[in-house]
Computed example of a mutant assay.
Amino acid sequence: MSVTQETEKKQSGRSKTKKVLNILLKVFGAIVIVILLFVATVYSVNKISSHSEQKRMETYGQRVSVDGKQMNISIQGKGEETIVLLPGFGTASPALDFKPLISELSPYYKVVVVEPFGYGLSDQTERERSTANIVSEIHEALQSLHIDRYILMGHSISGIYSLDYVNKYPNEVSAFVGLDSSVPTLSEQKIDSSDTQPIKWFRNLGFARLQLKLSADPYDGLPYDEQTKEQLNILIRKNMYNTTQLNEAESMYSNFKAAEQLTFPVNLPVLFFVQKNHPAAENWIPEHEKLIKDSVHGEVVLLEANHYLYRSHAKEIAENFMGFMKEIQ
């Protein structure tokens, strides 16, 4: 092969390589543009939808001043005894979410639903979501409404906060009822701010709405009317992954650890409603039983239900609870 032919061959090879690179660059550029357009569409749809939903959102309950911010409290029923309901982590609208249970209890009790900061219609807060702060805020809200004697009823993570609460205010709490409530020995995994930062971007760009769109309806087939479900869905999209709740997630591990040193007061009546078959924790039931082993009045009721057992088994919970209260009086 002559020098000229070899040069032409090299130039031809370079030309082909350049064409391939140009094609790859164009494909890469097209992919980037498609991704950017997709992100922009998701972001725009979320902004427009959020604005529309804000107009359709219905208010409920009453707002009270706590630590310079507004906390929403819902009160139903006029019974002589008061029940204070506390939600599980991330519950978008406690007052609406507890509706089946409220319907069963309100004919006999005054039912007070506290929506902590970052939940329901309450403000958000930058204050650390330690158990001490959450408990003091709930107490301040109740005090402002002159509610000073009540049965505390908490779902999930509120079981951890309630352990602290009943020890701090033993003269106010007459009994505790756990709704598949968390126990200190079965701690959540540690979450750092570095773990929540991507979630903030995920929310701010509108992908939380897309996630919900692709997820199953958590209220499908449950005793919630269409108007309530619509409002629940609006508030889920409003509060999902908000800053206050993410801060609470970051504080969760240390809150569980602090609760390991606590026990229920021996003379405090304690009733646990627990799911019979926990999907992840085999010792879910034994750990609840351990918490009340020294209680003068302690009982565990097992239900064939998931973690949100008050949504599907409200009547059964109410009947067992009222029977328990009659026995201890």
Rank of each mutant, 00 (worst) to 15 (best):
Q245W: 11
T125I: 02
K257N: 10
R56D: 09
V166A: 05
G118S: 09
A314N: 09
G118W: 07
L291C: 04
G79D: 09
Q76N: 04
T59S: 15
S93K: 01
L86S: 04
S187T: 07
D123M: 03
L291M: 15
V3G: 13
Q261Y: 07
I102T: 05
S52V: 13
I191W: 03
K168M: 05
I83T: 06
M153V: 10
N167V: 06
A281M: 03
M325C: 00
T59P: 06
G154S: 02
I31C: 14
Y161P: 00
Y43R: 08
E230K: 09
Q211D: 04
L24T: 01
H155C: 06
M322W: 07
E8H: 07
V113K: 10
V173G: 11
K238W: 00
P184I: 07
P269R: 01
V112S: 02
L142E: 05
S251F: 12
K315D: 06
G88R: 01
L232K: 00
K99E: 12
V32E: 02
S181R: 08
F89M: 05
V64M: 02
E316I: 08
S12I: 01
K315Y: 01
T244F: 10
G120C: 08
T41W: 07
E327R: 15
S74C: 00
H146F: 04
R129T: 00
Y308W: 14
E260Q: 13
L105V: 03
L271C: 06
S49V: 10
S215Y: 06
S254K: 03
Y109M: 00
M325Q: 13
P269I: 07
G178W: 05
Y119R: 07
N22K: 07
T41F: 14
E230G: 11
N46Y: 14
V296I: 12
I328N: 04
R63K: 15
E137N: 15
M1Y: 06
P116R: 11
E282P: 03
Q189V: 03
K213A: 14
V135M: 02
E282M: 06
Y241I: 01
Y224A: 10
T17L: 14
E6Y: 06
I234Y: 15
A216D: 12
D97H: 06
M71K: 03
S93D: 14
A305Q: 12
P94K: 02
E248V: 00
E126L: 11
D97K: 08
N242E: 04
K47F: 04
W201N: 09
E289R: 11
R63V: 08
L37C: 15
I31H: 04
I285P: 05
V64Q: 05
E299T: 15
T228L: 12
S215E: 08
P94S: 04
E81T: 08
S193E: 15
